[in-house]
Design a binder for these strands. Structure first.
Lengths: 173, 173
DNA sequence: CGCCGGAATGTTATTGTATAATAGTTGCGA
DNA sequence: TCGCAACTATTATACAATAACATTCCGGCG
């Protein structure tokens, strides 16, 4: 792209603006492939294809959308097909669920353990993922005070990405 | 402790351990009542009763559970009854949705604007809410870098509350 | 009084999300 | 060849959420 290469461009910025998305796909897919063989888990055709589909864009895809695609591409047509693939991919950390949308996105940082945080555009449903420190301090403090053992955490922020904010502003004028 | 009265007891601790829950109910309900009349919004019977039901415990209640209760207590029996009440209560900030569970909890801090954060016990489904700074710094930085306008955010941590951790440990021995 | 408009409810129907339960398939080592 | 394990297929169902429309209640106003 574009890009600019300043060195301090953030990940969210990457996701939200034009970039060579084939790089994203290749990079993540390679990583997944490698990790899967390392961990001796089966990266089967359905699972792989599900990940490919999710990688096609940074927008979040609902389960039944994924299912429709899998069906069209010759895999099963019943819900469990999609959900099993998703379970696997989530378990491996290749995919996150965006709770707010009941939808799924490919993880852009499959290599590092992290607490995913999302910037969710309510207009175009694009989702920018950003890595966040294992667990935010405030939360950790509360948890420790109660003896609550955090196993997994997420952050989700909803709003308007820049493109949509501009578009909306235009529409309202 | 129990308790210990150190003065630094946190809110999450409050929710996760025994306490006089009638105080919670009264306190929140009073606040809601007052705020509603201040803001000149209609705190109608269904809405009020829905809040009362949610206040009965710190556990998260699914929409259809609430609906069943409303029905049993003589209000409507169709989904929109529950969802309308929830929309109102959420809009007023009296209730939060716990995305992870597709369930709803009464807000324990109806007086202050805040980003809710939840400690969700996967065993007993109890939910401890803790107030968190408007928006966590890391996220805010990302957002600003992209021109993303955050309108609303949540944090959810899943794990085991102390009681359930003990119980589970016991069961496994 | 009688009409109007808005807010809140009631009702029916539909779509989307997710899982339970069960059975069939494939590959592989003993 | 048997049996195990992992994966896949299918049916059915429960739960979550919203669309669309009818109805009621109430306050303001000519």
């Amino acid at each position: 792209m574009a890009n600019g290469k300043t060195g301090e461009r953030t990940a969210a910025a990457e996701a939200m603006r034009p970039h060579d998305h084939r790089d994203c796909i290749r990079r993540v897919l390679d990583e997944a492939e490698r990790r899967a063989s390392d961990d001796r888990v089966n990266f089967t055709p359905v699972r792989r294809h599900a990940l490919e589909i999710l990688l096609e864009s940074h927008a979040a895809m609902p389960a039944y959308g994924l299912l429709k695609r899998l069906d069209a591409d010759g895999f099963g047509s019943q819900p469990p097909v999609a959900y099993r693939a998703l379970d696997f991919l989530i378990g491996q950390g290749f995919v996150h669920k965006v709770e707010r949308l009941n939808a799924y996105v490919a993880c852009m940082y499959p290599h590092e353990a992290h607490t995913p945080a999302f910037l969710i555009c309510r207009a175009c449903r694009s989702v920018a993922e950003t890595c966040v420190a294992p667990t935010p301090a405030a939360l950790l403090r509360e948890a420790q005070a109660t003896g609550f053992a955090i196993e997994r955490s997420v952050m989700e922020a909803e709003g308007l990405c820049r493109a949509c904010a501009l578009a909306e502003g235009a529409a309202c004028n």
